[in-house]
Simulated assay, not measured.
Amino acid sequence: MSIASSSTIDTPIGPFTAVVAGDGTVLAAGWTASLDLLLPVVAPGLRPAEVRARPDLGPVTDAVRRYHDGELSAIDDIPVRQASGEFIQRAWEVLRTVPPGKPTSYTDFAALAGRPDAIRAAAAACARNAAALFVPCHRILRSDGSLGGFRWGLETKRWLLDHEAPSGGQLQY
C-alpha cells in the first residue's frame, strides 16, 4: 500500500496542491485545493492508496513558493514521477527543458520530442501531464501564438507566461 503526502498553499493565482510520494517525488500538482481533480490524472500504477495532508512538503513547497515569488528556476530540480508510453514519457522530459520566458509551439515541441509529425500526440502529453508547474506544459502554445488549452484554465496559463516573460513584460498571444 503506497502512502503519499499532499499540501495546498496559497499562490497569487489561487491554491496550489502537490501530491508527493514517500521519497519526495512529485506525482501530481496543480492550481486547485481538490485532490479529486489531481489524483485521477496520476497513472493507475503510481496512484497512491492513501494521501495524507501535511502543512508543508519541504523542498517541493519551498520550490513552489520561490517560483511564484519570481525564482523561476526553483522548480527545475524537483523530481517528478509519471508513467505512460515511450513518446509521452519523452515528451514530458522535453517539457522540463523548455526555458521560462521562451514558450514554444506544439509543432516545435513535437519535433523536440523526436517525432515532428506527432503534433496531436505532443498535445496529448500536455493534456495528460499530472505534474503541472514541475513539468511546465503551460510553456507550449498553438502555432499562431494563441494559448491553446490548459487544465488549470487559460487565465492561469496567461499569468504563468507573463510571470516568466523577460523583464516582467507580457508575451503576445
Rank of each mutant, 00 (worst) to 15 (best):
P116R: 13
K102M: 13
V20Q: 04
T97R: 12
V41P: 00
E86N: 07
G30V: 09
I88S: 07
I140L: 13
L37M: 06
Y67A: 04
V42M: 03
V135I: 14
A29N: 02
L27A: 07
I75V: 15
A124M: 12
G45M: 07
H138G: 03
I9H: 01
G14T: 09
P99M: 06
A53R: 14
F87N: 05
P40H: 03
Y106N: 10
P103R: 04
A91Y: 06
T61C: 02
D144S: 13
A91C: 09
D69E: 15
G145A: 12
G70N: 02
L133C: 06
W92G: 07
A53Y: 03
A130K: 02
D69H: 12
G58V: 07
I75C: 11
A63N: 00
T107S: 13
A28E: 01
R54F: 04
G14S: 11
P40Y: 02
P12H: 11
T8F: 05
R142L: 14
R128Q: 12
R142Q: 14
I119V: 15
A4I: 09
N129W: 10
D76V: 11
P59D: 11
R90A: 12
P12I: 06
R66H: 07
A121C: 05
D23T: 13
S146V: 12
L27K: 07
A125L: 05
W92D: 10
A113Y: 04
V80Y: 05
L57V: 05
A91F: 09
A127I: 10
R96C: 10
R128C: 06
D144E: 08
A122P: 08
T11S: 07
V19I: 15
S6Q: 08
D76L: 13
A28F: 02
R139F: 09
P12D: 03
R90Y: 04
I140M: 00
L35D: 01
L46D: 10
R128V: 01
A63T: 08
H68M: 15
D62T: 15
A118P: 05
D117P: 00
G101E: 06
A63S: 13
S5M: 13
P12E: 08
S143A: 15
G101F: 04
R115M: 12
C137L: 05
P12N: 09
E86W: 14
P79K: 03
A4T: 08
A83Y: 03
L46A: 08
G58A: 13
A132W: 02
G70S: 12
A123T: 05
Q82M: 15
A122F: 02
L112H: 11
L147V: 08
C126H: 03
G30F: 06
P40F: 07
P103A: 11
F134Y: 07
T17R: 02
G70H: 05
A53T: 14
